[in-house]
Amino acid sequence: MIPAPFDYTRPTTVEDAVTALRAGGAGAKVIAGGQSLVRMLQRRLVRPTLLVDVGCLSRMREVVEEPDHLVIGATTTQHELLHDARVRAHAPLLSLVARHVGDPAVRHRGTLGGSVAHADPAGDPPAAVLALDGEIIVEGPRGERVIPSAEFFVGPFRTALEPDELLVGVRVPKMGEGWTVHYEKFRLSAQKPTLLGVAVMVRRVGDCFTDAHIALANSGSTPVRATAVEVALVGADVTEEAVTKAADLLDGTMEPFARQGVSQAYLAHLARVLTRRAVVAALSW
C-alpha cells in the first residue's frame, strides 16, 4: 500500500519543529519512529500534507535526572527504555513495558513519545505512564505546558495535544524505597494487539501494602486507573488472598475500543485474573 503524497521536513531544533508544525497548519503531522504512523499513512487513515520528522532533535532524545524525577525525552526509543541504566534504576516500569512493545526491530525505532502521542487504547506504554502519574511535557507556539497523564489521554487516538504542539518529554517520579512494579499483558495470539494489559506499582512496608497504582490498557477508550482496587489494597495485608479480594473489586463494565470478539464476561474475568497476577508478580519482583 502506497501513502498519498506529502511534503517532508527534518528540523534540527525544537523551535524549528514547532514553527514548521505551525506553518503546516491542520495538514502537518509529527513523525518520530514511524512504527505506527507509516501504517496509517499506507492505509490512508491519515492524509497529512507535511510530515515534520523529530527523529534528529537531540534535545528530545535525552534522559535527564532530576532530584526526584526522571525526564525522558520523547524520542527515546523502546529499545533505549529497556537498556538505559537510569530508566532501569529509577523507572523500571517503563523498561518492563517497553519489552512488551512489538519486537526488537520495532523497538529500535518506536519511541516513548510516539506511543504516548499515538494514544492507541491498546497501547502498552500509555498505561504504564498513567500508573506512574507521569507528566507530559509539551512545547508549542505558546511555550511549554505540562499535562498530567490523567488529563492527557482523552479518547481513542486522541490526546490533549494541540495540532501545533510537540510532545518533548515524559516526566516520571523516581521509584522510591519499598516500591515494586510489574506489567502483565494478555493477547489472543502472538501478533495480536494487547487484549488487556495491567501496569502495577505497589509499595509495601512490612506485611502491609501502603500504596498501589494500577492502570489498565484496552479496558476502555483510554488507559484507566483501577481506583477501587488501589483503594482496597492500601492497608491490606500482603497475602495472595487479600490481593485476590482487591482484584475482584474491578468493575466489569469495561468498554474496550477493540473488543477482538470476546464477551464482556470473558473480559471482566480476564481483568481480575490479570490484575491479581500482576500484583503478585510485582511482589516477587
Binding site: M1, Y8, R10, I31, G34, Q35, V38, R39, Q42, L51, D53, G55, H79, G102, D103, P104, A105, V106, H108, R109, Q191
Partner: peptide, 29 residues
Amino acid sequence: CDTGNCGACTVDLDGASAKSCSVLAVQAD
C-alpha cells in the same frame, strides 16, 4: 506483508535492525 509484522524486509539501519517497510526513505537520509 507490508504491515510491519513479518520481518522479511529487515535490514540494518545505522547499527540496529529495522523493518524497511516501516521506514520512509527520507527518514534514512
